[in-house]
Design a protein around this nucleic acid. Structure first.
Lengths: 200, 200
DNA sequence: ACTTGACAATATAGCGCCATATTGTCTAGA
DNA sequence: TCTAGACAATATGGCGCTATATTGTCAAGT
């Protein structure tokens, strides 16, 4: 692969991602059914036919947009977890926010539609990413001094990760503002990390 | 009020509550719309007209059944919280389970219907009970040694209670079995109570 | 005090039909 | 490589209609 094709591939890839970003925005606002290919094309600044040249159909576009969104969120969460310069508490908060916080304030009446479409069109992907998130959180905990306390409390890092994730889900469904969400996540993370701030 | 009327009132009240119990079961299984007065009457072992002698209409029956269910759950939660012989962790677990755990495994396709009907027919009652639950949890925390740690962590008992409640909500929506739910609640409660098990 | 059987009023589910919106595909062209 | 315009196939929402189920209310009986 020479320079030209590499550059072209990179540019085409960038364009591809930009389209997916636009699609994510439109799907998030209108849900799966009420979002039209026309709307997505306009948001991406291209023609409707341009979309069909890149994606076989609406379902495929949705699948890729969903996967891109999940990928972005998971990548950001992993990045947050790997900032070992920060304390575990800050990393957990940032990770949960990156993973679950993005669409907190903006879920309308189409939320059920989105969840339904996501599970029916890419349920496996969805659960796979969620599981990867929990595993990464569990690893971060296992590689921290908190791991020792877990054992003492007859718990494993995986348990903490799962419950942290459940808390994020609960907050997502009950919080109106993102600030509220972050506040809630901060509370769990801080309490989970409490053993680190005391002499054991 | 003499003995006879008092006894009669008590018996009538017991009957009333038994009918509400039956109604709760039917509504929980079928949702609001798909549950028929006929079904409730059969479950309560009485005639459909008997229901209309006690409740003005279906909405009123639902409101009272919901309130009775909330009342039962809140009462059980308060009782759990007041068992000061137990440690805070056990009390928090029992309280969350009593408040949120009852219908964990049994939520079918009519769950949305139930939530929608509940909020539209008795939204104020719903939020009032939820708020009372959180306040009671907050009080239990404030009256425990954990209160001191809260202050040190720049948090208040109310924050912990709210987040605990959010965790219960998240678990309720993601757990398939009640055991799973209790396990998740145990994890948060144990970690929240961690500061009590260490020398500060 | 509750049941039974009946009743009209109303809600619900299903169906077909129509108008419209959207999808997915094509051709021609910049 | 993308756009523009057109196209059939299909999905969707609305409307009227029918059949059925359910609600809410009777009168009569126990």
């Amino acid at each position: 692969m020479n320079m030209v094709t590499a550059t072209e591939a990179a540019r085409s890839d960038t364009r591809h991602l930009a389209v997916l970003e636009a699609a994510v925005g439109v799907f998030a606002r209108y849900g799966f059914r009420k979002a039209s290919m026309d709307e997505v094309a306009r948001a991406a600044g291209m023609s409707r036919q341009g979309l069909y040249l890149q994606f076989a159909n609406k379902e495929e576009l949705f699948r890729q947009a969903l996967q891109h969104s999940l990928d972005t969120q998971l990548t950001a969460a992993l990045a947050a977890l790997s900032r070992t310069a920060d304390g575990l508490e800050a990393r957990l908060i940032a990770a949960c926010d990156a993973w679950s916080g993005r669409f907190v304030g903006s879920q309308g009446a189409d939320a059920t539609d989105l969840m339904c479409a996501s599970t029916s069109l890419a349920g496996a992907t969805l659960t796979r990413y969620a599981s990867e998130f929990e595993s990464a959180v569990a690893r971060a905990i296992a590689n921290s001094p908190l791991d020792a306390y877990c054992a003492k409390a007859d718990l494993c890092p995986k348990d903490l990760a799962r419950t942290l994730h459940a808390t994020a889900r609960g907050l997502k469904q009950s919080c109106v503002t993102r600030a509220e969400f972050v506040k809630g996540v901060t509370v769990v993370a801080r309490m989970f990390c409490a053993p680190l701030n005391q002499r054991g």
